[in-house]
Amino acid sequence: MTPTIDVDHVARLARLVLTDEERERFGRQLALILEHADRVREVAAADVPPTSHPIPRANVLRADEPGPSLSHEDALANAPEAEAGMFRVPPITEREEEG
């Protein structure tokens, strides 16, 4: 089975501008890779728990004690654009989040 991928939808989610050539090529390559990756379905049975961490740990926490912050200058040193001590960005026209 070769999955069909809505490349435009995925690119929008990933916030990537793709050229027409990339769109075509990635569509083709992703389908191939996914076909190969599809093999994971052959062996993973319902009674196998998923692993998200190679070495299980729990409750790794830090004390609520202040550590060093960056100086204001260092915080903004890498900013592509700054104004009034803040990071300046082009206008925001929509809110993408649900809350």
């Binding site: 004690e65 202040p66 912050s69 960056l70 915080a75 903004l76 009034a84």
Partner: peptide, 25 residues
């Protein structure tokens, strides 16, 4: 006293971008 995932101070009303570190940026 501090933020959720780093040691920056959790305080209201500080001048912009003064309670920030590499983690919370």
């Amino acid at each position: 006293r501090t933020k959720m995932f780093c040691g920056c101070r959790n305080e209201f009303g500080a001048p912009p971008n003064t309670n920030v570190c590499p983690v919370c940026l």
